[in-house]
Amino acid sequence: MTRQITIDDILKLVEFELVQQSLPQDNISEAIQRLHELQTYWHAEMLHKGRAPKMEEFANALFNANQTTLMLLQTINNSLEALKLESKKLKLLIEKGILEDEEENRSGSRELAYIKESLNILSQNLSRIRTLYSLEIQMRYSNLPIIGKFINRFRAAFHQLVYFYLNNYIQSQNIVNEQYKSLLQDMIIVNSSYVDKLQELILALQKITEHYSSNEEQS
């Protein structure tokens, strides 16, 4: 089903672009994306789907992932702080009976709707991030006569040794990852609840505005 574009559609598009611009820089989704890409890449690398990585590269990748996660946490924390401030401001305005411009309220609730939507997307993305990893031995077997068996046995022993330490390291990283993930999820929940709270406050404010204006008309 198609219909012609009208000027109302264009005005809505302009509003949409302006709201996009007014939202804080989209660090969170960018960071999630980067994290996701990193994990996918190293997952593939470790499971011999790509080139064989060096230990140093692996450690570097983990550090990068951690760094990105930390950045993510910081950004979410900042937005949480900002929301807290907004919430306090609104509460104060309601308490003092200072009425905000109705148009501003409307644009405020529109922005909140966008924040809420981005938080949902964030939460979905987060649930997709894999935090638990383990490595299984995958080695090349030698088919040489007589010495092949010895080579294989030696290789297996060597791999086991390396993988033992590597898995230990990965286990501890997994724990950190899990903690990060749960922390992020908690923060998203808190953020969402703040958004809900803000929306409630805006509704309350609108009611007060209506009540105020009807009183004014009567008087």
């Binding site: 012609q4 574009i5 009208t6 000027i7 264009i10 005005l11």
Partner: peptide
């Protein structure tokens, strides 16, 4: 055409 009509509408807005 539609493009011109919409441009005129944008001017009006």
């Amino acid at each position: 055409n539609q493009d011109q009509n919409l441009l005129s509408e944008i001017e009006r807005q």
